[in-house]
Protein backbone atom coordinates (compact mmCIF):
# COMPACT_ATOMS: atom_id res chain seq x y z
CA UNK A 1 0.00 0.00 0.00
CA UNK A 2 1.30 3.40 -0.88
CA UNK A 3 0.05 6.94 -0.86
CA UNK A 4 -0.67 7.93 -4.42
CA UNK A 5 -1.44 11.60 -3.93
CA UNK A 6 -2.80 14.03 -1.38
CA UNK A 7 -5.30 16.71 -2.23
CA UNK A 8 -5.72 19.49 0.25
CA UNK A 9 -8.80 21.66 -0.26
CA UNK A 10 -10.24 24.50 1.76
CA UNK A 11 -12.33 22.25 3.96
CA UNK A 12 -11.11 18.76 3.30
CA UNK A 13 -8.07 16.65 2.70
CA UNK A 14 -8.31 13.68 0.39
CA UNK A 15 -5.60 11.04 0.57
CA UNK A 16 -5.52 8.58 -2.32
CA UNK A 17 -4.19 5.21 -1.18
CA UNK A 18 -3.07 2.68 -3.74
CA UNK A 19 -2.96 -1.00 -2.89
CA UNK A 20 -0.74 -3.64 -4.47
CA UNK A 21 -3.51 -4.83 -6.73
CA UNK A 22 -3.78 -1.32 -8.18
CA UNK A 23 -7.02 -0.54 -6.39
CA UNK A 24 -7.14 3.10 -5.35
CA UNK A 25 -9.16 4.23 -2.38
CA UNK A 26 -9.74 7.92 -1.61
CA UNK A 27 -9.71 8.73 2.08
CA UNK A 28 -11.61 11.91 2.83
CA UNK A 29 -10.82 13.89 5.96
CA UNK A 30 -12.74 16.96 6.92
CA UNK A 31 -10.64 19.75 8.30
CA UNK A 32 -12.35 20.56 11.55
CA UNK A 33 -9.48 20.71 13.90
CA UNK A 34 -10.46 23.51 16.19
CA UNK A 35 -13.72 24.32 17.90
CA UNK A 36 -14.25 27.34 15.71
CA UNK A 37 -13.86 25.75 12.31
CA UNK A 38 -16.81 25.63 10.00
CA UNK A 39 -17.61 24.75 6.45
CA UNK A 40 -20.06 27.47 5.73
CA UNK A 41 -20.92 30.71 7.41
CA UNK A 42 -24.13 32.57 6.77
CA UNK A 43 -23.76 36.27 7.49
CA UNK A 44 -25.94 39.29 6.78
CA UNK A 45 -23.91 40.53 3.85
CA UNK A 46 -21.39 38.94 1.61
CA UNK A 47 -18.88 40.86 -0.40
CA UNK A 48 -20.25 42.43 -3.55
CA UNK A 49 -17.84 40.51 -5.74
CA UNK A 50 -18.20 37.20 -3.94
CA UNK A 51 -20.06 35.68 -6.85
CA UNK A 52 -19.48 32.04 -6.02
CA UNK A 53 -19.67 30.93 -9.63
CA UNK A 54 -18.13 27.61 -8.70
CA UNK A 55 -21.30 26.73 -6.85
CA UNK A 56 -23.27 27.04 -10.08
CA UNK A 57 -21.02 24.41 -11.57
CA UNK A 58 -21.88 22.09 -8.68
CA UNK A 59 -25.50 22.49 -9.60
CA UNK A 60 -25.06 21.73 -13.29
CA UNK A 61 -27.37 18.71 -13.03
CA UNK A 62 -30.13 20.97 -11.83
CA UNK A 63 -29.34 23.40 -14.63
CA UNK A 64 -29.90 20.76 -17.29
CA UNK A 65 -33.00 19.41 -15.61
CA UNK A 66 -34.46 22.92 -15.73
CA UNK A 67 -33.59 23.15 -19.41
CA UNK A 68 -35.29 19.83 -20.00
CA UNK A 69 -38.32 20.88 -18.00
CA UNK A 70 -38.67 24.12 -19.97
CA UNK A 71 -38.47 22.32 -23.25
CA UNK A 72 -40.67 19.36 -22.44
CA UNK A 73 -43.34 21.22 -20.52
CA UNK A 74 -44.04 24.09 -22.91
CA UNK A 75 -45.71 22.23 -25.75
CA UNK A 76 -47.31 19.41 -23.78
CA UNK A 77 -50.95 18.93 -24.66
CA UNK A 78 -50.68 20.88 -27.88
CA UNK A 79 -51.41 19.05 -31.10
CA UNK A 80 -48.88 20.84 -33.25
CA UNK A 81 -46.21 20.68 -30.54
CA UNK A 82 -42.83 22.02 -31.61
CA UNK A 83 -44.37 23.04 -34.96
CA UNK A 84 -45.32 26.24 -33.17
CA UNK A 85 -41.64 27.08 -33.21
CA UNK A 86 -41.94 27.26 -37.03
CA UNK A 87 -45.30 28.90 -37.31
CA UNK A 88 -44.29 31.94 -35.27
CA UNK A 89 -41.33 33.13 -37.42
CA UNK A 90 -43.02 32.21 -40.72
CA UNK A 91 -46.03 34.38 -40.04
CA UNK A 92 -43.98 37.24 -38.64
CA UNK A 93 -41.80 37.14 -41.75
CA UNK A 94 -44.90 37.14 -43.92
CA UNK A 95 -46.35 40.17 -42.16
CA UNK A 96 -43.05 42.05 -42.27
CA UNK A 97 -42.70 41.30 -45.98
CA UNK A 98 -46.13 42.72 -46.68
CA UNK A 99 -45.98 45.72 -44.33
CA UNK A 100 -42.36 46.86 -44.51
CA UNK A 101 -41.39 45.37 -47.87
CA UNK A 102 -44.50 46.05 -49.96
CA UNK A 103 -46.43 48.83 -48.22
CA UNK A 104 -43.57 50.89 -46.81
CA UNK A 105 -41.12 49.85 -49.52
CA UNK A 106 -38.14 49.76 -47.20
CA UNK A 107 -35.18 48.36 -49.16
CA UNK A 108 -33.58 45.11 -48.04
CA UNK A 109 -30.01 45.60 -49.26
CA UNK A 110 -30.93 43.82 -52.48
CA UNK A 111 -31.68 40.61 -50.63
CA UNK A 112 -34.82 38.48 -50.93
CA UNK A 113 -37.12 40.09 -48.33
CA UNK A 114 -38.07 36.73 -46.82
CA UNK A 115 -34.46 35.88 -45.95
CA UNK A 116 -33.68 39.42 -44.87
CA UNK A 117 -36.54 39.53 -42.37
CA UNK A 118 -36.26 35.95 -41.26
CA UNK A 119 -32.67 36.11 -40.07
CA UNK A 120 -33.41 39.33 -38.20
CA UNK A 121 -36.53 37.89 -36.59
CA UNK A 122 -34.83 34.64 -35.61
CA UNK A 123 -31.95 36.44 -33.92
CA UNK A 124 -34.16 39.05 -32.34
CA UNK A 125 -36.54 36.39 -31.03
CA UNK A 126 -33.69 34.70 -29.26
CA UNK A 127 -32.43 37.90 -27.68
CA UNK A 128 -35.92 39.05 -26.71
CA UNK A 129 -36.83 35.69 -25.23
CA UNK A 130 -33.67 35.60 -23.11
CA UNK A 131 -34.34 39.13 -21.94
CA UNK A 132 -38.05 38.86 -21.18
CA UNK A 133 -37.97 35.44 -19.60
CA UNK A 134 -34.97 36.10 -17.39
CA UNK A 135 -36.39 39.44 -16.31
CA UNK A 136 -39.22 37.53 -14.60
CA UNK A 137 -36.93 35.13 -12.77
CA UNK A 138 -37.48 36.30 -9.21
CA UNK A 139 -41.18 36.95 -9.45
CA UNK A 140 -42.18 33.80 -11.33
CA UNK A 141 -40.09 31.50 -9.18
CA UNK A 142 -40.60 33.11 -5.81
CA UNK A 143 -42.51 30.04 -4.63
CA UNK A 144 -39.50 27.81 -5.27
CA UNK A 145 -36.97 30.38 -4.09
CA UNK A 146 -38.93 30.83 -0.88
CA UNK A 147 -38.68 27.20 0.06
CA UNK A 148 -35.29 25.94 -0.91
CA UNK A 149 -31.84 27.24 -1.63
CA UNK A 150 -29.86 26.69 -4.77
CA UNK A 151 -27.72 29.22 -6.63
CA UNK A 152 -30.43 31.47 -8.03
CA UNK A 153 -28.44 32.19 -11.16
CA UNK A 154 -29.09 28.60 -12.28
CA UNK A 155 -32.61 29.53 -13.36
CA UNK A 156 -31.85 32.43 -15.73
CA UNK A 157 -28.94 30.50 -17.20
CA UNK A 158 -31.22 27.54 -17.83
CA UNK A 159 -33.61 29.87 -19.66
CA UNK A 160 -30.84 31.12 -21.93
CA UNK A 161 -29.84 27.57 -22.74
CA UNK A 162 -33.34 26.27 -23.36
CA UNK A 163 -33.97 29.25 -25.64
CA UNK A 164 -31.01 28.14 -27.74
CA UNK A 165 -32.95 25.01 -28.63
CA UNK A 166 -35.81 27.14 -29.89
CA UNK A 167 -33.39 29.35 -31.75
CA UNK A 168 -31.81 26.23 -33.29
CA UNK A 169 -35.12 25.00 -34.63
CA UNK A 170 -35.98 28.40 -36.10
CA UNK A 171 -32.52 28.68 -37.52
CA UNK A 172 -32.90 25.34 -39.31
CA UNK A 173 -36.02 26.83 -40.88
CA UNK A 174 -34.02 29.85 -42.01
CA UNK A 175 -31.30 27.61 -43.47
CA UNK A 176 -33.88 25.67 -45.48
CA UNK A 177 -35.18 28.91 -46.97
CA UNK A 178 -31.60 29.97 -47.60
CA UNK A 179 -30.86 26.78 -49.54
CA UNK A 180 -34.08 27.17 -51.51
CA UNK A 181 -33.23 30.73 -52.57
CA UNK A 182 -29.63 29.76 -53.28
CA UNK A 183 -30.76 27.05 -55.69
CA UNK A 184 -33.16 29.53 -57.25
CA UNK A 185 -30.12 31.69 -57.96
CA UNK A 186 -30.85 34.67 -55.71
CA UNK A 187 -28.02 37.12 -55.03
CA UNK A 188 -26.77 35.70 -51.72
CA UNK A 189 -23.25 34.78 -50.78
CA UNK A 190 -22.85 32.83 -47.55
CA UNK A 191 -19.19 33.06 -46.60
CA UNK A 192 -16.57 31.87 -44.16
CA UNK A 193 -17.81 34.26 -41.50
CA UNK A 194 -20.69 31.92 -40.71
CA UNK A 195 -18.14 30.38 -38.36
CA UNK A 196 -18.81 33.44 -36.20
CA UNK A 197 -22.29 32.08 -35.38
CA UNK A 198 -21.41 30.56 -31.98
CA UNK A 199 -19.69 33.78 -30.97
CA UNK A 200 -22.58 35.94 -32.13
CA UNK A 201 -24.99 33.66 -30.31
CA UNK A 202 -22.93 34.00 -27.16
CA UNK A 203 -23.04 37.79 -27.50
CA UNK A 204 -26.83 37.76 -27.82
CA UNK A 205 -27.20 35.33 -24.91
CA UNK A 206 -24.91 37.47 -22.76
CA UNK A 207 -26.75 40.68 -23.60
CA UNK A 208 -30.16 39.10 -23.00
CA UNK A 209 -29.07 37.46 -19.77
CA UNK A 210 -27.19 40.46 -18.41
CA UNK A 211 -30.00 42.86 -19.13
CA UNK A 212 -32.65 40.36 -18.02
CA UNK A 213 -31.20 39.57 -14.61
CA UNK A 214 -30.52 43.24 -14.01
CA UNK A 215 -34.18 44.06 -14.62
CA UNK A 216 -35.18 41.00 -12.62
CA UNK A 217 -33.20 42.27 -9.63
CA UNK A 218 -34.91 45.64 -9.84
CA UNK A 219 -38.42 44.23 -10.15
CA UNK A 220 -38.25 42.36 -6.85
CA UNK A 221 -38.98 45.52 -4.96
CA UNK A 222 -40.37 47.91 -7.52
CA UNK A 223 -42.56 46.35 -10.16
CA UNK A 224 -42.43 49.43 -12.37
CA UNK A 225 -39.66 47.91 -14.46
CA UNK A 226 -41.91 45.08 -15.51
CA UNK A 227 -44.05 47.49 -17.48
CA UNK A 228 -40.99 49.14 -18.91
CA UNK A 229 -39.62 45.90 -20.26
CA UNK A 230 -42.89 44.84 -21.91
CA UNK A 231 -42.99 47.66 -24.43
CA UNK A 232 -39.30 48.51 -24.17
CA UNK A 233 -38.33 45.33 -25.99
CA UNK A 234 -40.79 46.15 -28.76
CA UNK A 235 -39.42 49.63 -29.23
CA UNK A 236 -35.87 48.36 -28.96
CA UNK A 237 -36.49 46.13 -31.98
CA UNK A 238 -37.11 49.15 -34.16
CA UNK A 239 -33.83 50.63 -32.96
CA UNK A 240 -32.11 47.53 -34.32
CA UNK A 241 -31.69 46.91 -38.05
CA UNK A 242 -34.24 44.10 -38.31
CA UNK A 243 -36.75 45.60 -40.74
CA UNK A 244 -34.24 47.94 -42.38
CA UNK A 245 -30.56 47.61 -43.28
CA UNK A 246 -27.98 49.57 -41.32
CA UNK A 247 -26.80 51.22 -44.53
CA UNK A 248 -30.24 52.81 -44.90
CA UNK A 249 -30.21 54.04 -41.30
CA UNK A 250 -26.81 55.62 -41.78
CA UNK A 251 -27.90 57.27 -44.99
CA UNK A 252 -31.15 58.71 -43.66
CA UNK A 253 -30.11 59.61 -40.13
CA UNK A 254 -26.86 61.30 -41.12
CA UNK A 255 -25.06 62.57 -38.05
CA UNK A 256 -27.54 60.79 -35.77
CA UNK A 257 -26.52 57.40 -37.12
CA UNK A 258 -24.38 56.82 -34.03
CA UNK A 259 -27.64 55.95 -32.25
CA UNK A 260 -28.07 52.90 -34.45
CA UNK A 261 -24.41 51.97 -34.00
CA UNK A 262 -24.49 52.48 -30.24
CA UNK A 263 -27.09 49.77 -30.00
CA UNK A 264 -25.04 46.65 -29.15
CA UNK A 265 -27.46 44.41 -31.05
CA UNK A 266 -26.87 46.26 -34.32
CA UNK A 267 -23.43 44.91 -35.07
CA UNK A 268 -24.54 41.37 -34.20
CA UNK A 269 -27.52 41.40 -36.56
CA UNK A 270 -25.45 43.04 -39.30
CA UNK A 271 -22.68 40.48 -38.88
CA UNK A 272 -25.23 37.66 -39.11
CA UNK A 273 -26.62 39.17 -42.33
CA UNK A 274 -23.16 39.55 -43.77
CA UNK A 275 -22.07 36.02 -42.88
CA UNK A 276 -25.15 34.20 -44.14
CA UNK A 277 -26.44 36.46 -46.90
CA UNK A 278 -23.39 38.37 -48.03
CA UNK A 279 -24.90 41.85 -47.54
CA UNK A 280 -24.64 43.86 -44.39
CA UNK A 281 -21.83 45.38 -42.45
CA UNK A 282 -19.26 43.23 -40.72
CA UNK A 283 -17.35 45.78 -38.70
CA UNK A 284 -14.80 44.42 -36.23
CA UNK A 285 -14.80 47.65 -34.19
CA UNK A 286 -18.55 47.53 -33.79
CA UNK A 287 -18.33 43.88 -32.78
CA UNK A 288 -15.59 44.59 -30.26
CA UNK A 289 -17.81 47.32 -28.84
CA UNK A 290 -20.73 44.90 -28.54
CA UNK A 291 -18.50 42.34 -26.84
CA UNK A 292 -17.27 44.86 -24.32
CA UNK A 293 -20.79 46.12 -23.79
CA UNK A 294 -21.99 42.56 -23.21
CA UNK A 295 -19.25 41.83 -20.69
CA UNK A 296 -19.85 44.99 -18.70
CA UNK A 297 -23.62 44.49 -18.75
CA UNK A 298 -23.33 40.86 -17.73
CA UNK A 299 -20.98 41.77 -14.92
CA UNK A 300 -23.30 44.46 -13.60
CA UNK A 301 -26.24 42.09 -13.99
CA UNK A 302 -24.58 39.24 -12.09
CA UNK A 303 -23.37 41.51 -9.29
CA UNK A 304 -26.82 43.08 -8.84
CA UNK A 305 -28.53 39.73 -9.05
CA UNK A 306 -26.13 38.34 -6.51
CA UNK A 307 -26.81 41.16 -4.12
CA UNK A 308 -30.56 40.98 -4.48
CA UNK A 309 -30.86 37.20 -4.25
CA UNK A 310 -29.76 37.24 -0.61
CA UNK A 311 -32.83 38.97 0.73
CA UNK A 312 -35.27 39.29 -2.13
CA UNK A 313 -37.71 36.94 -0.42
CA UNK A 314 -38.42 39.72 2.07
CA UNK A 315 -39.48 42.21 -0.55
CA UNK A 316 -40.76 40.30 -3.56
Amino acid sequence: MSILSIYSGANEIIIYLQFKNKITIPLKLLKLASENDYIEKITPKKHLLDLNLKEIWNYKDLLFLFVRRDFVAVYKQTILGPLWFFIQPIFTTLIFTVVFGRLASIPTDGLPPVLFYMIGITCWNYFAECLIKTSNTFILNSNIFGKVYFPRLVLPISIVISSILKFGIQFVLFISFLIYYYIQGADIQPNIFILLLPFLLLLMAGLGLGFGIFISSLTTKYRDFQFLIAFGVQLFMYATPIVYPLSLAKEKLGSYSWIAVANPMTSIIEAMKYAFLGHGELNWYYLAYSTLFMMVLLFIGVVTFNKVEQTFMDTV
Binding site: L30, L32, D37, Y38, I39, E40, K41, I42, T43, P44, K45, F145, G146, K147, V148, Y149, Q310, T311, F312, M313, D314
Partner: peptide, 14 residues
Protein backbone atom coordinates in the same frame (compact mmCIF):
# COMPACT_ATOMS: atom_id res chain seq x y z
CA UNK B 1 -31.95 27.05 4.64
CA UNK B 2 -30.43 30.20 3.09
CA UNK B 3 -33.70 31.35 1.60
CA UNK B 4 -33.04 34.75 3.08
CA UNK B 5 -30.22 36.32 5.05
CA UNK B 6 -30.17 37.39 8.68
CA UNK B 7 -30.06 41.13 9.43
CA UNK B 8 -27.28 40.64 11.97
CA UNK B 9 -25.30 37.77 13.41
CA UNK B 10 -23.97 34.63 11.83
CA UNK B 11 -24.79 30.98 11.35
CA UNK B 12 -21.94 28.50 11.05
CA UNK B 13 -22.52 25.03 9.74
CA UNK B 14 -20.38 21.97 9.33
Amino acid sequence: SKVTKPSTGSIKTR
